[in-house]
Design a protein around this nucleic acid. Sequence first.
DNA 1: GTTTCCGTTCAATTTGGATTGAACGTGACG
DNA 2: CGTCACGTTCAATCCAAATTGAACGGAAAC
Lengths: 156, 156
Amino acid sequence: MSETPTDRFIETLGLIYQSEGAPRIAGMILALLLMSDRPMSLAEIAGRLGISKASASTNTRLLERRGMASKTRGGGRQDFWEADPDPQSRVLPALAERFREHARAVQGVARTFPPEEEAKRAKIARFAAFYDDSAEFLDAWSARLTAMADPSPETN
Amino acid sequence: MSETPTDRFIETLGLIYQSEGAPRIAGMILALLLMSDRPMSLAEIAGRLGISKASASTNTRLLERRGMASKTRGGGRQDFWEADPDPQSRVLPALAERFREHARAVQGVARTFPPEEEAKRAKIARFAAFYDDSAEFLDAWSARLTAMADPSPETN
DNA sequence: GTTTCCGTTCAATTTGGATTGAACGTGACG
DNA sequence: CGTCACGTTCAATCCAAATTGAACGGAAAC
């Protein structure tokens, strides 16, 4: 009755997700789907992980929004979920998106500074620029990673 | 009695920190110190932000560990805190460090897979490699940013 | 040497977000 | 149609982490 390697992966990815401020269960589901050789229904996922189907539903759809998992309607009325082939490739774009939101928020604040406080405004603006530049950079790097892993888009 | 631009910055950076899974108060303190023209004592910080001095202590030291703020012992027995000149430059290295931890954790799991499950192990190993490569890249990019902002290390 | 004023620590409390149970909506099967 | 088997929703609950209050330790001031 000892813990299998797959169990360990599920647990580990759950902890990673948690430490990144995402729902632990989303990480667990992603790990489970990655290790599964066939698509799984919500009920299977919930049963295997010992979680409620409410959680399974919420978190599979979270993964879907991030482009890390997708569902296929089975013959009956079940949805079957599977991990996308390269879920890692979505990590950095998701981060970039968050950074862009931060940049927008900070830029909004910078605009509220009156002319007398130009120095402070500039300091804040640099903060915003950092977030924006980093977002752009993360996207670029991510695209390069993708291109290396999958050199198909050679439409020369 | 309306909210000043500085207040808005404090609030915004607090929310950003919170959304990144860090203590909201750490973000608020960083924003306050950035906007302050002089170093501030713990008591001042706590008073200005309306928080306990326990929190002020804990979170200033968190910022210190991240290299975003530093204290100077004042003449008396107070510590005076100020934001480091370029706190943004610490964001990506901190992220890189987290990614490296993730990589280590995932590699550890990969090692527990038996030979029969080589395919699964390889999938996980790629996950780990992603975290490790990204960490390395984040550090490199961050160093470049720093070099551009501060081109002093030209020991030619 | 004593008092005072700091910052730190830590157990207790609070808070925000994740998770759940139960009710609901919907499309399939008879 | 009516029933059933699913996925979704949402208010209630739970939980981990942030925050606090109070007690503490130690360096400065006297």
